[in-house]
Computed example of a mutant assay.
Amino acid sequence: MSVLIDRDQGFASPALVPAEGDFARNHAGAELNIGLINNMPDTALKATERQFMKLLQAAAGPRRIRFHCFSLPSVKRSPEAKWHVESEYSDLSDLKRERFDGLIVTGAEPVAPELDQEPYWRDLTELIDWARTNTRSTIWSCLAAHAAVLHLDRIERQRLPSKCHGIFDCETVSGDALTRDAPAPLKVSHSRLNEVTEGDLAQAGYRVLTRSAQAGVDVFVRQYDSRFVFFQGHPEYDALSLQREYLRDIGRFLAREREAYPALPVSYFDAATEEKLVRFEKRARHQRHPALTNELPALTLRTDIAAGSAAAALFRNWLQYLGADTEVPLLAR
């Protein structure tokens, strides 16, 4: 099952359509074959499909993209999400029977204390090894980036004192065509409890492309037979993604599913909204009950978050690399 992404196509739903036989192989110069390994939590599963489809559509220009959705079978799912994956996604075994120009691999919500204890660890490491030699380039996002560097170079992620959550200004620190024509600064969403440090990455031979003074390393790369691109953040997030996560975490606090009340996302809500949310937090700590979510104030985002502009530039350059003549690499190695 796949989606054919055209420049003027609308996405009323993420439903997939059957592939058109050998069309991609017969039009290799005009069409790219890209797979999304979507391991995001059930609540973000469909939103992630739409976000990446819209992002690739905005970045592709006149080029057509054959977009395939997969998910690691060992990621735990609710019955509804499992049905969606089984009925709408391609089987992961099909990945090795097709030629893919590029892959995008998302993280999953952690359920184990250590990454290599996650139930999907074996499936993920087999995917990492396969992608090294069977794609031109693979993008590893957030937790998937942490898992990849752990498997490849035993780089351990480090727990942060508090969650890195918000929109951060990132600067380009290493010249590379992946960041060509990107806005300065790049405003990128981050949402994570852990990080890999620039010192550990540099020592192992990775090259950092962008970083934030507050959030640390943002984008970094490593060349194998495939060019691996790692995002510690979530450039695909739309304007409301962080809001949904923040409200989810408030709901979990009120339902006593988590002990800590979530901190406000950095540089995300406007000043008036932040004041209202600080007052709501005080109430929530004293009247901790799920019904209190019905009294959350109206939320207004800052006008300068520039959601999607950084991602559009990065993915435009990535697609140009995937479509370039392999003997004249677009991106520095």
Rank of each mutant, 00 (worst) to 15 (best):
N33E: 15
N33H: 10
I34V: 11
I34W: 02
N38S: 03
N38H: 00
N38K: 10
N39K: 10
P41H: 04
D42A: 06
D42P: 07
T43Q: 03
T43P: 01
T43R: 08
A44K: 09
A44S: 14
A44I: 08
L45G: 02
K46T: 12
K46V: 11
K46W: 06
T48Y: 05
R50D: 11
R50C: 06
Q51S: 14
Q51V: 04
F52A: 09
F52W: 15
M53W: 05
M53K: 08
L56Y: 13
L56F: 12
Q57H: 02
Q57T: 00
A58E: 10
A58T: 14
A59Y: 12
A60Y: 00
A60K: 08
G61F: 12
P62D: 12
R63F: 13
R63S: 05
R64I: 07
I65G: 04
F67L: 01
F70R: 03
L72T: 09
L72K: 14
L72A: 13
P73G: 06
P73F: 08
V75R: 10
R77E: 02
E80K: 10
A81Y: 02
A81T: 03
W83Q: 15
H84Y: 15
H84F: 13
E86S: 10
S87I: 06
S87F: 04
S90H: 14
D91N: 12
D91I: 09
D91H: 14
D91Y: 04
L92T: 00
L92P: 06
L92D: 06
S93E: 12
D94T: 14
R97H: 11
R97C: 12
E98P: 08
R99P: 03
F100Q: 07
L103W: 08
L103T: 01
L103N: 05
E109G: 12
P110L: 03
V111H: 13
V111F: 09
A112K: 11
A112N: 01
A112W: 05
A112E: 11
P113C: 03
P113M: 01
E114P: 10
E114L: 15
D116Q: 10
Q117A: 08
E118P: 13
P119T: 05
R122H: 14
D123Q: 11
L124H: 11
T125S: 11
L127N: 05
L127D: 01
D129M: 12
D129Q: 13
D129S: 15
W130F: 15
W130L: 07
A131W: 04
R132L: 14
R132C: 15
T133G: 07
T133F: 09
T133S: 14
N134I: 07
T135D: 00
S137K: 10
S137F: 12
S137N: 15
T138R: 09
I139K: 05
W140E: 00
S141Y: 01
S141C: 12
S141M: 13
S141W: 05
S141I: 15
C142I: 08
C142G: 09
C142W: 06
A145N: 06
A145G: 07
H146Q: 15
H146T: 14
A147L: 01
A148L: 06
V149C: 01
V149D: 00
V149H: 00
H151W: 00
